[in-house]
């Protein structure tokens, strides 16, 4: 063992290093203060987000919806976006309007806020709101909690959603994570540092647009689900374990709240589970756990007066109509819209 310095000085030096490890990260707050644009305010979901500058609520969308007075409101992500053409659906409905509130890369938190703030609380009275989702997405509240999307549909405070997110993120890990985040503000530093690193290797590209385009092409053309080995694609496409325990996830999901809003507003809700990318010989494989999950979801929704439709195994949606991953090719969008109209008569009754 080294005998450098007195024991007391050695202990002080140990304390100095431990303190250094604890104190230096506070420097991130100083960095944040420099890099943070003015106008940061507490988040509407403070349990999982630090103060930041938020984007504006989309009032124009509310006005447009109010003016159109649609019969059916469609809510979902790119799965719905590549399958449903709202104009064509309106024509199929005989002129009664269908409005699409799709946002690519959105999740259940976004869908819930859209329904609550753009439809129910805006005083609209469509007959039906239809939610499109994949597998266990509906009950995975933390799936795609992206501020850039949520800002457009969130009010100043969203206590119900915040409580659900807090409950979902209430493990020991999340509690420690929250404490550290509040102490050091490293999530704010990450918000600007990580994109900087991810974009740095394409810095040679002449314009910001060219850089963005290249990153999009790498994601959408090189690393598509199609390009993966079958096992890897299956692993990536399928949820497992606790995510497929419907009863466990229901209390911390937005589903009961959507149904409560539906009952209080008199707007009927329908849920469509879109089919993931099928294999060359048939529909995509489903684990026993996923089948059990879907069964429990269907039973719960039907018990609570909601409509449910499952696209899985639809022979009219073969592999040939798919483009990348679970997206449908553009030329089959009208075909899928017609399928949706034909196979969900209750929605349009």
């Amino acid at each position: 063992m080294p005998s450098s310095g007195s024991p007391r000085r050695q202990r002080l030096s140990l304390a100095a290093v431990i303190l250094g490890a604890a104190i230096v990260p506070f420097g991130l707050r100083a960095v944040n203060a420099v890099t943070r644009p003015p106008g940061a305010e507490p988040s509407y979901i403070p349990s999982v987000e630090s103060p930041r500058v938020r984007g504006p609520f989309d009032r124009e969308a509310v006005e447009a919806l109010r003016e159109a007075a649609n019969d059916v409101i469609l809510i979902g992500d790119s799965m719905a976006g590549t399958r449903i053409h709202p104009g064509h659906l309106s024509r199929l409905m005989g002129g009664r309007g269908a409005a699409a509130l799709f946002h690519p890369g959105s999740g259940p938190a976004y869908w819930y806020l859209t329904f609550k703030n753009l439809v129910v609380n805006a005083g609209l009275h469509p007959r039906t709101a239809v939610f499109f989702f994949r597998d266990e997405n509906l009950t995975d509240t933390l799936f795609r909690v992206y501020p850039s999307a949520l800002d457009r549909v969130a009010r100043q405070r969203e206590p119900v959603l915040d409580e659900l997110l807090a409950a979902r993120a209430n493990g020991r890990y999340f509690r420690v994570h929250r404490i550290l985040t509040r102490l050091y503000g490293h999530d704010q530093a990450r918000a600007w540092l990580e994109p900087l690193i991810v974009r740095a290797p394409v810095a040679w590209s002449a314009t910001r647009r060219a850089r963005k385009r290249l990153l999009e092409r790498i994601n959408n053309e090189v690393f598509t689900l199609d390009a993966l080995r079958p096992m890897a694609a299956a692993d990536m496409a399928s949820a497992s374990g606790e995510a497929l325990d419907f009863r466990r996830n229901l209390p911390t999901s937005v589903l009961p709240e959507i149904l409560r809003l539906s009952h209080s507003s008199g707007i009927r809700v329908a849920f469509v589970r879109v089919q993931r990318r099928p294999g060359p010989d048939g529909p995509p494989p489903q684990s026993a756990a996923l089948r059990a999950y879907v069964g429990a979801l269907r039973a719960y929704l039907e018990e609570n007066g909601a409509l449910f439709h499952d696209d899985w195994g639809d022979p009219d949606q073969p592999l040939s109509i798919y483009e990348d991953g679970d997206h449908i090719a553009r030329e089959y969008r009208l075909h899928c819209t017609e399928l949706f109209f034909r196979k969900n008569p209750e929605v349009f009754r």
Binding site: S4, A16, V17, I18, A21, A22, I23, G27, L28, Y184
Partner: peptide
């Protein structure tokens, strides 16, 4: 015991923790 070494260690340990968090 070298004060500069200890200061460098403290600074480096803190920077690594900040980096790992971020």
């Amino acid at each position: 015991l070298d004060g500069r070494l200890v200061a460098a260690q403290a600074l480096l340990a803190g920077t690594l923790v900040a980096g790992a968090l971020t």
